[in-house]
């Protein structure tokens, strides 16, 4: 699909919007609908569209496999690490109330935000990896 000008132009227009939308959904999950999972999927959809139209090499140039593997791990670690941070501050695992904040509610909001970022990172990078693996060996 590399040589179709309409697809290339439309993709270049669409991908930034998808990435912004995905980031917005992750960061505003606590206020509006959505959250880490949905936002991560939208982010991944942006990268996958890019990979479909411009080819796998181009996708690997933008997000190398080392980066997706690392970020997938980092997401899970961020989630679990938030829990451990709560324990270090004297609470229970994932008991966000003890995190720094003006009061319990603000601390809870901080904990939930961090956790959502972790989910978003993992979901996004794993979806890219699944696409990467499934479409391997097939050249459109």
């Amino acid at each position: 699909m590399n040589n179709q000008p309409v697809l290339r132009v439309i993709t270049k227009l669409l991908v930034p919007c998808m990435l912004v939308m995905g980031g917005y959904v992750i960061t505003h999950g606590e206020i509006g609908p959505g959250g880490g999972f949905q936002g991560g999927v939208i982010l991944a959809a942006g990268f996958i569209l890019y990979g479909i139209v411009f080819g796998k090499e181009e996708l690997h140039r933008v997000v190398p496999r080392r980066v997706t593997d690392g970020l997938a791990t980092a997401g899970v670690l961020l989630y679990a690490g938030t829990g451990v941070w709560c324990m270090l501050r004297g609470g229970r695992f994932l008991d966000y109330g003890v995190l720094p904040g003006v009061d319990t509610g603000a601390a809870e909001a901080l904990g939930m935000t961090l956790v959502e970022y972790g989910v978003g990172l993992t979901v996004c990078t794993v979806m890219i990896t699944i696409y990467d693996m499934i479409s391997e060996g097939v050249e459109a």
Binding site: G29, E30, I31, G32, P33, G35, L94, Y96, G105, E108, A109, G111, M112, V115, E116
Partner: peptide, 13 residues
């Protein structure tokens, strides 16, 4: 009730 979105509170907390 820490966030206006009940679903996020449920899932994350």
């Amino acid at each position: 009730g820490h966030s206006p979105n009940t679903v996020t509170s449920l899932l994350a907390a």
